[in-house]
Design a protein around this nucleic acid. Structure first.
Lengths: 241, 241
DNA sequence: AGAATTCCGGCACCGAGTGCCGCACGGGGC
DNA sequence: GCCCCGTGCGGCACTCGGTGCCGGAATTCT
């Protein structure tokens, strides 16, 4: 071995070396076949230090999500009230995709792990849930005055997360080829266009948005139709303005 | 609890007594403060038997989800191709809500546990994910010919699950008062009306099943909506016929 | 330099989960 | 009656993730 580098710029040297050692072992012999003792032995540190930097063995697989979640929270907190909430939330989702895109090989390797190991998959689920909750909380406050605002917020957050994950997984399955940002844009556009028709993207002129409050309900019935149901549909949709 | 379910071929005596003992201890001294040894001691059985009936300590908190997931899978597999996929998926979500509604007190107690204990929350997340995946798989096969079918399926499944959870959590937070089925119907109606405009239909539609070909397309758009988008939705939904 | 704080390693310990073995059933078969 | 065999249960003994605690070394402050 060459002489150790005397330059140690920041402080997270041990943290990074633990991540490196962990992934080396995870990829070559599997996650569950690797014990924490194996990791700390390879990294040349004490076992106790591992749990100082990572609260659990699973956390070492997702070392950057905590930071990304902070970024998203700050991003949403810094949004103006004039912005379209849905657009803002889509941009927040793009933040996550950008994090994945920064290290394609690392992201792909991690994806292979999470696909095989059930424990890592559930851990990733909990991370995704925190993202979704962050988006949902933001939408909830923005739509606090709206009737069914919380329901709308929950569903919208779930749809955005689902679209993001769709694009992300497709990109990861391809091995990190192509531009994931482009893919997630397509998916989010689909969500925004299909789910939330207000403030459509392509035409920048949303008519009757200022103080109109005039709901437009279009009912198209083809052939014979049980009218009682159509009436109920219209009534229920008019009931929530 | 009286013996209710006749569909239990094996002898669930020990299993039920383990569940009862576990919840007694969980509710009186907390989940993490209760060890598996405490449970088996109270139940009067050996420690090894616990893990014969429940693969992990968390599984004892969700003893009925496995059965419910099977029910949902069978329900979707038994659906005719003429059914509206979205309606079918909403009915599948109702199945889950019905399971919760069968034992309100038990559901509320479990809800309190999952709210406090982080480990149980992530476990519940993994269960919800399996439901969502089941719904998504079904929609994916139904929309295989559609452009962006998988994206549509993922987002729709996520929206349905989010709406279901919204109604469920609201009902659980109220302590199990009122009719949760009614609440989930409202929430699912919102999703179907807002997200998927094609073919609004009653859950048990007696019409349109005899000789078919009488498609009813109802498009409801809230607020002012760019008409080109409505037209596009109608056209695409008519193209499937 | 001396003191205080922080960082690290090495225990000892707890609890979840597993493999293995022995035992007590219970039911045929003869 | 006996023996045989499959099954369900209990009781180890063990691994491994995770935590509390303490002593020592490195670093920083004054």
């Amino acid at each position: 071995m060459a002489a150790t580098n005397p330059r140690t710029p920041p402080k997270p040297v041990m943290r990074d070396s633990l991540i490196a050692a962990a992934f080396r072992l995870f990829l070559e012999r599997g996650y569950e076949q690797t014990t924490v003792d194996d990791i700390v032995t390879l990294a040349g540190v004490g076992r106790r230090s591992f749990f100082r930097y990572f609260p659990s063995k699973e956390d070492v697989v997702f070392p950057d999500h905590e930071q990304c979640l902070d970024d998203m929270t700050r991003f949403l907190a810094a949004s103006a009230d004039t912005d379209d909430p849905v657009v803002r939330v889509c941009d927040a989702a793009r933040l996550v995709m950008r994090m994945y895109a920064e290290n394609p090989t690392f992201s792909v390797q991690r994806y292979r792990l999470t696909r095989e190991v059930a424990g890592l998959r559930t851990y990733e689920l909990s991370v995704v849930w925190r993202y979704e909750k962050t988006l949902g909380d933001y939408l909830r406050t923005r739509w606090a005055d709206r009737k069914d605002g919380t329901l709308r917020a929950n569903v919208a957050a779930a749809a955005v997360v689902a679209a993001h994950n769709h694009a992300l997984r497709h990109w990861l399955r391809s091995g990190g080829e192509g531009d994931p940002l482009e893919e997630v844009d397509r998916a989010l556009e689909f969500v925004r266009g299909t789910w939330s028709p207000d403030a459509a993207a392509p035409p920048a002129g949303p008519d009757a948005s200022a103080e109109g409050a005039d709901d437009v309900v279009v009912v198209i019935t083809k052939r014979s139709t049980p009218m009682w149901r159509v009436v109920r549909e219209v009534e229920s949709s008019l009931g929530e303005g």
